[in-house]
């Protein structure tokens, strides 16, 4: 540090110029709207007319909103049960497809498919898979003599179904990021390990996993952020039901904003969501081991 500073008497502006194009666009088109959202949360904005300032009353009402409180719980459950499986599966598949067999590009393509297909079309397939009367899953169950399950219409199974679809959708994406990360692991390390007689399982735990730390950390942070904002499959598949067992924070935000016209109130939910995610991200940074130190 000190050595660097003494070498450059003036502040080197190059890093700022490198940041500038991306950062300016980010700030104007992403950050400024976020500030607006925070401002709306203190108003009674209803899409039309001037927002009136209401102080903290939106936030006070949030404390009484049992549905919102329920949605936080649902969202946390969803996050916990999607982030871990999708990362474990993604890593496992990426590792397996990184080296071993010949036909790997086909398998990779198949696993990546869910990520490219638009949710509107695929949701119909899932709804149909889960349909209690004529769905595929119940057909299978009945053919082996079991009675069908109401899947999305059963308060106990609806959330697990949403989680399955969530994991299904993003495993391919985790796989891709891990594949890219795996390339940073020098092949020579494996060769040395092989000479030492380490099996592939041990190689994985002693070489691959530690060296993938930056990638794993990135995925942990991103997956957490994205899972907390789950909305698409909820809105298409269950609309938050049955008995509100699948309503999530963003689903509540959407409902309040675009169906009830309470943009101000919905924005206050978004601010709470921001705090929840920021806390989770902070914990990830603290205990996930960010290797941000350059020196």
């Amino acid at each position: 540090m000190t050595k660097q500073k003494s070498k450059h008497h003036r502040l080197d502006t190059t890093p700022y110029f490198m940041l500038a194009p991306g950062y300016l666009i980010y700030f104007i088109f992403i950050m400024v709207p976020v500030f607006y959202g925070i401002y709306y949360s203190f108003t009674n904005y209803a899409f039309y007319g001037k927002p009136g300032f209401v102080g903290f009353s939106n936030y006070r009402y949030l404390l009484k909103d049992s549905l919102f409180i329920k949605s936080i719980g649902n969202t946390v459950v969803y996050t916990v049960f999607t982030v871990i499986p999708q990362m474990v599966l993604g890593l496992f598949i990426a590792n397996a497809l990184n080296k071993s067999f010949r036909t790997k590009s086909i398998w990779r393509g198949m696993i990546y498919m869910p990520n490219v297909t638009s949710m509107v079309a695929v949701s119909m397939i899932w709804l149909w898979l889960f349909d209690p009367a004529s769905g595929f899953l119940n057909m299978v169950l009945r053919s082996i003599g079991q009675s069908g399950i109401d899947w999305l219409y059963n308060p106990d199974t609806a959330m697990p179904c949403i989680i399955v679809v969530g994991v299904w959708k993003v495993v391919g994406y985790n796989m891709i990021i891990y594949l890219a990360g795996l390339q940073a692991v020098p092949q020579s390390l494996y060769e040395v390990a092989q000479i030492d007689g380490a099996g592939s399982v041990r190689q994985f735990f002693s070489i691959t996993l530690p060296l993938l730390k930056p990638t794993t950390f990135f995925l942990l942070v991103m997956n957490t952020i994205q899972s907390f904002q789950v909305f698409e499959q909820v809105s298409i598949m269950t609309n938050g039901g049955p008995l509100n067992t699948t309503t999530t924070i963003v689903h509540q935000i959407y409902t309040r904003a675009f169906l009830d016209f309470k943009m101000g109130y919905a924005s206050s939910m978004a601010v709470i969501l921001l705090f929840v995610i920021a806390t989770a991200t902070f914990l990830n940074f603290k205990f996930g081991g960010d290797t941000s130190d350059v020196d």
């Binding site: 540090m1 660097q4 502040l11 080197d12 190059t14 890093p15 700022y16 940041l19 950062y23 980010y26 088109f29 992403i30 950050m31 400024v32 709207p33 976020v34 607006y36 959202g37 709306y40 899409f47 942070v221 991103m222 952020i225 907390f228 904002q229 909305f231 963003v250 935000i253 959407y254 904003a257 675009f258 943009m263 919905a266 924005s267 978004a270 969501l273 921001l274 995610i277 920021a278 991200t281 941000s292 350059v294 020196d295």
Partner: peptide, 29 residues
């Protein structure tokens, strides 16, 4: 790759932008 004043703040600010759902930022944008 570089250390420069404000790097930490600028970096964490990047993540904040990810944490607010589209439904809220749609209208200002």
């Amino acid at each position: 790759r570089f250390t420069f004043p404000g790097r930490g703040v600028l970096f964490y600010l990047i993540l904040i932008g990810l944490m607010v759902p589209e439904q809220v930022t749609l209208i200002p944008l």
